[in-house]
Design a protein around this nucleic acid. Structure first.
Lengths: 201, 201
DNA sequence: AGTTTTACGGACTGCTTGGTACGAATAATC
DNA sequence: GATTATTCGTACCAAGCAGTCCGTAAAACT
């Protein structure tokens, strides 16, 4: 597995730091609304030339898509991990509530939900990825809830798919409120109120 | 009160149709995201010159604010009327659910919530008006719920203010989903699930 | 040394944006 | 008819946008 310069390639050696640039782009898109971050501003922020960006990512759509990919690997994966643990319902809902309404990491909201909210403004690649992640999230929540039902842990009389959609939307709502700078305590209260629908029969 | 040309004013007579222009602007902002409607496009759509717009509304902010004003008078007022009727809780929640998830008038979502979602992109006047309407909505819902509590109709153990906030956000979520073109049936199911928190003790 | 290959970025394109300068048009008044 | 008051819209502005041209730098190969 040694990727230690196995082939001294021809031509001028590449100096473009893809990883660093992607980090900066992801952070910028995350902090602000992706629609409010221009390529020009991004180039300046990362001290990178525009042609370099185009060589590496093909354009704005490619860059956004790559940034979203990284976000999914870096941040969203944690949520999927939590679900795959198949912990009791109460415990999982508490963890999700804390994550969405209080986790300092999510103080500026969630890049995925921000992109989803402005889906019509995205390029085709990024939009496709957003829909992919959305479907994956619903699927993961559905699987988790079906597991909890089988474990006798959840007695809801609704379909797991509906409950999963509901969860995804309520968490999204909370994270959108955080991005808007609303009071975490109030966000938490609202989210707890909503999720009560899954706790009681 | 006759405004029948009581004063033959000096200067060139005005031909600008403020009402018609405002209607077209409101509709355009409503159908699309306000951030995606440029003044240029609006002028073309209304067959109006840009300087005329500036003379009448002062700029983009003024026009948006005027369009939102008209929207509040035209559309939102209906909701406030429903609340002021002080109908039983179940009945009102059903009406709100139908309004948000199925009313054909709201097929493209709600201008107020669209503006609120992109609040940071608005001019100062429009933003201020959005916050005003938001506060008014919460206030109206709070007053209604307190009335229902007094009538023994609502036995919730939470504050009316929290329940009002919750209602405003859930209705907003449903209307945002409608703007995104999601299935009304699914939107309805999700909203009913959320509002169950207010129906049960 | 010279050729080939690859990556580099300054400077440019064409387009859209919100906003405005200004002369022409149209009325009442003198 | 001249003056004054008011509204009209063409034509322009600077700024910002995504995206690209192309000359130059830096390496390996011959």
């Amino acid at each position: 597995m040694s990727d230690k310069d196995p082939k001294p390639k021809r031509g001028r050696p590449k100096t473009f730091d893809r990883d660093r640039t992607l980090d900066i782009a992801m952070t910028a898109y995350w902090e602000a609304d992706p629609a409010d971050v221009s390529l020009n501003a991004l180039c300046q922020r990362a001290a990178v030339s525009k042609p370099a960006l185009y060589r590496e990512f093909g354009g704005e759509d490619g860059l956004m898509r790559a940034a979203l990919d990284r976000y999914a690997e870096t941040v969203l994966s944690d949520v999927f991990v939590v679900l795959s643990k198949n912990a009791p319902l109460e415990e999982t809902l508490d963890a999700l509530t804390a994550f969405a309404s209080e986790d300092p990491k999510m103080e500026r909201g969630c890049l995925f939900y921000k992109m989803r909210a402005g889906k019509h403004r995205l390029g085709p690649e990024t939009r496709r990825r957003v829909e992919e992640i959305d479907a994956a999230a619903v699927h993961a929540f559905t699987a988790y809830l079906e597991g909890r039902r089988a474990a006798g842990d959840w007695a809801g009389d609704i379909s797991a798919a509906l409950a999963a959609r509901f969860l995804v939307e309520q968490i999204g709502l909370a994270l959108t409120q955080r991005a808007a700078g609303e009071d975490p305590g109030q966000i938490r209260d609202t989210l707890v109120l909503a999720l009560a629908a899954l706790r009681r029969p």
